[in-house]
Write a protein that binds this DNA or RNA. Structure first.
Length: 277
DNA sequence: GGCCAGGAGTAAA
DNA sequence: TTTACTCATGGC
């Protein structure tokens, strides 16, 4: 993998197992969308980037020069996904996981901000992806830092807390308003110390996250997987339940799926959710 | 107009 | 320990 930078654009070549359309459209993030001028654009970590991929092994990132390490890490470009796939395949067996890996061959699990994933997946509960995106965009526009024309950073815990439960409800978050407020309050006053939480082992992390009102096993698992880089976390939502019932009627021992269970889960989710056969 | 959406809290059995 | 109901909202 080699990176060059010129004219506000990083060009990363020598890639494998990478497809930005799959990465940004597999339900793991909610602030990246197709750009009117082609490619995919969005905001993370308070920075805007625009991605284009004209070849399987080459990615162009329009971003600040100083942000290249951030985006490289964000995209998990340092992770050897051929090894990940081999490990998953050796543990699952069967045609289903092979087909799912093939269907989502370019998926990479993003390393997102823990706080952002917590709020995003609280919003996701009993909701659909387009509306989740709308609500997060509305929240960011309402109280996130303005980065440019129509561009807003994801808001800080304090900014969300200052909105109050009423302000959050006014954004049409519905019954989730109180959940979002509780989470923001806890992060703000230190009852939920995200830096300390990041040092816990995964079971302890999940238990800690579940102290927040409105965070249960599924939301906690998504935050752990997408926001704390816990690739062994295995979120079970309606789609994954569907996959498990359909292809693994005799049950699947998730504990035996190893360090990349969460990545396997993402292949399966993508396979079933987007009906990629 | 009922059903569903990357669920979780609550009460009841 | 599971099961049924409820929670706002919007697309279909």
């Amino acid at each position: 993998m080699t990176t060059t930078y010129a004219d506000g654009r990083a060009v990363i070549s020598g890639l494998s197992d990478t497809d930005i359309n799959q990465i940004f459209d597999c339900g793991q993030c909610f602030r990246f969308d197709p750009s009117p001028r082609g490619g995919i654009e969005g905001i993370a970590g308070g920075h805007y980037a625009h991605f284009t991929q004209n070849a399987p092994d080459t990615l162009e990132i329009e971003c600040e020069r100083d942000d290249i390490p951030f985006w490289t890490r964000f995209l998990s470009l340092d992770v050897d996904y051929s090894a990940v796939k081999a490990d998953i395949s050796s543990r699952f067996g069967g045609d289903t996981i092979a087909a799912a890996i093939k269907a989502g061959a370019g998926i990479r699990i993003l390393r997102q901000d823990a706080w952002e994933t917590l709020i995003s997946f609280i919003i996701s509960q009993n909701n659909n992806i387009p509306r989740i995106k709308k609500l997060i965009a509305a929240l960011s526009e309402r109280c996130g830092e303005r980065l440019g024309d129509e561009l807003y950073a994801f808001p800080t815990p304090k900014a969300v807390c200052d909105l109050g439960e009423d302000g959050l409800f006014a954004l049409k978050t519905g019954f989730r308003a109180g959940y979002i407020f509780d989470c923001a309050s806890r992060v703000l006053d230190g009852r939920l110390d995200l830096e300390a939480a990041a040092k816990l082992d995964t079971p302890a992390l999940l238990a800690k996250l579940c102290e927040v009102r409105g965070i249960g096993p599924k939301v906690a698992s998504c935050a752990a997987l997408f926001g704390f880089n816990r690739t062994e976390a295995f979120p079970i939502d309606v789609w994954v339940k569907r996959v498990l019932a359909k292809y693994y009627p005799d049950g699947l021992d998730i504990a035996k799926l190893g360090a990349y269970a969460g990545i396997a889960q993402q292949y399966l989710f993508y396979y079933e959710r987007y009906n990629v056969k």
